[in-house]
């Protein structure tokens, strides 16, 4: 730091107080900027969903909520999520257990590989599945012969969702396992606990909040995934249309009411996600980080 100004004499008290008052002014300018920026990008758009959904009145909202295609979309989204999240939980726990408190060559490469789905465009992920299981894909003829449908059907939607949400649990649980260390597990094993007992009674309790945090994020993304699912689902109304696809379809057909009703439901999911996340960060001290 060869800055000549740093060698100047210490500022006088008068200059200091002047600076302090200028600083306050700067603070409110910046706070106003932040409120303005977030209003334009986040707050107004979020508020708009609730206003648009209720704009046409409750009866019209209930009309969409009870329509057959809407209910089918909800059902499919819930089923796909209910398959994806437990599978990713098992994977995430296994991956974290394999990596935590261990040192082996290629460990950081493996962590990067597990994080890879976050870097790959969901559309490209869907394309990969089409190239594998589509009727002109690798396993296309085999699947055709055996009558199993993956693309344009539930298995494809589930696989696409698994792909894009794969890292969520592992990346939350891994740091928690590292923090917890291995002493207690070793003590349990020495006292004669089986690996399962150790896992259920020692390991799991020590990572439960991080696991829950990962589950919440995984669940939100799984229910809202659009790009990857759009490629593999075929978007067959009432059959392979998930809620996000329902929104797009309704929007294209100028059925604004239906689009915003589905958006309202998913926004409630987002609000619940944010509230749970907030409390987990505050009470369990989990650090938020970018995904």
């Amino acid at each position: 730091m060869a800055d000549s100004s740093l060698n100047q004499p210490v500022a006088t008290a008068g200059a200091k107080s002047q600076r302090a008052s200028r600083f306050q002014w700067g603070k409110w300018l910046l706070v106003t900027f932040v409120f303005g920026y977030l209003a334009l990008i986040l707050l107004v758009p979020a508020l708009n969903v609730f206003i648009q959904a209720f704009k046409a009145g409750l009866p019209s909202l209930l009309d969409t909520l009870t329509s057959k295609f809407f209910l089918n979309a909800v059902k499919l989204t819930v089923i796909a999520t209910a398959i994806t999240v437990p599978l990713n939980t098992v994977f995430g726990l296994c991956a974290a257990l394999s990596l935590a408190n261990k040192n082996f060559p290629g460990r950081s490469l493996l962590i990067s590989i597990i994080d890879l789905p976050f870097s790959i465009s969901p559309v490209v992920a869907g394309l990969m599945l089409v190239l594998l299981f589509g009727n002109r894909g690798w396993f296309g003829p085999l699947l055709d012969a055996s009558g199993i449908k993956i693309i344009f059907a539930l298995p494809g939607i589930v696989m696409a969702t698994i792909f894009v949400t794969m890292p969520f649990i592992a990346r939350e649980v891994l740091p928690a396992l590292e923090d917890a260390g291995t002493e207690q597990e070793e003590a349990a094993a020495t006292l004669g606990a089986t690996p399962w007992q150790t896992f259920w009674r020692v390991t799991l309790p020590s990572i439960k909040w991080s696991l829950l945090y990962g589950l919440i994020l995984c669940n939100a993304r799984a229910m809202g995934e659009f790009g990857a699912v759009a490629v593999v689902s075929g978007n067959i109304v009432g059959k392979t249309q998930t809620l996000p696809l329902f929104i797009e379809e309704a929007h294209i057909q100028y059925n604004t009411q239906a689009a915003y009703t589905a958006a309202l439901l998913l926004s409630c999911l987002a609000v619940v996600t944010l509230v749970l996340k907030y409390f987990l960060e505050r009470t369990a001290g989990i650090q938020h980080r970018g995904h």
Partner: peptide, 11 residues
Amino acid sequence: FALPTAVAGLT
């Protein structure tokens, strides 16, 4: 992170 992208695009 929490709001599905379809909802974001729509609103």
